[in-house]
């Protein structure tokens, strides 16, 4: 009986000590801000498109980190981003609700533009330049293809065009051998189940 008591006492004392250390550590090494939100934000494509229902990538990242949003709402990020976030959060991956379209960029038909600056105000990444009563134009290299400028335009002079493929950016596809394709399929299934 006394053995049992000793055991209980010593274990209890150890648990108490460990709890104390943890409490001190939490006070000492406290991190300001939400590191998880920053990590998720780093994974997002930063299109600021708002398709997730949040006003930008950072708000969505904060919501996911806080457990308020699911991991599968980033449309332009696609499956890759979803899997990365799920992996980081340690939750089950969820199927995407919408397929990501091919990357596109906005283009202002300048002869129809009336220079109202509404699209400039709408652009989340300042990729449209122009002044009141002047043609506006989209900076091709800065446009994220979020389509947020389409809606405000009073004369509908903005088109979404497919992004031109540059020969410098072309890259070799995976070798067309049975084995490599099998490996890819298997990993796809694995990711789906995990």
């Amino acid at each position: 009986m006394s053995n049992l008591l000793y055991g209980l006492l010593s274990l209890g004392a150890f648990a108490l000590l460990a709890g104390l250390i943890l409490a001190i550590a939490q006070k000492l090494f406290r991190i300001e801000g939400d590191p998880m939100a920053d990590k998720i934000d780093a994974l997002l494509p930063q299109t600021q498109c708002g398709q997730c229902g949040f006003p930008g990538c950072k708000p969505y990242a904060t919501a996911v980190a806080g457990g308020e949003a699911d991991v599968n709402h980033c449309v332009p990020g696609g499956e890759k981003t979803m899997l990365q976030i799920a992996d980081l959060m340690g939750v089950e991956p969820k199927a995407l609700e919408e397929e990501a379209a091919a990357p596109r960029i906005a283009f202002v038909r300048e002869d129809e533009c009336i220079g109202c600056t509404l699209c400039i105000k709408a652009c989340p990444v300042d990729a449209i330049v122009g002044a009141p009563k002047q043609y506006h134009t989209v900076i091709v290299d800065h446009c994220t293809g979020c389509e947020l400028c389409i809606e405000p335009c009073p004369v509908d002079c903005i088109d979404m065009l497919t992004k031109p493929e540059l020969i410098e950016h072309w890259s070799w596809p995976l070798p067309d051998t049975k084995r490599s394709q099998l490996a890819h399929q298997r990993r796809g299934q694995h990711a789906g189940h995990a």
Partner: peptide, 29 residues
């Protein structure tokens, strides 16, 4: 395989750089 890997790495880097630049512009806005 190496060419595939190099291409994919280059693509990743371009995407990261673009996302980073977009994020900065969004933040400054």
């Amino acid at each position: 395989y190496f060419r595939y890997g190099k291409g994919q790495l280059a693509l990743q880097r371009r995407e990261q750089a673009f996302a980073e630049a977009s994020r900065q512009r969004s933040e400054s806005r």
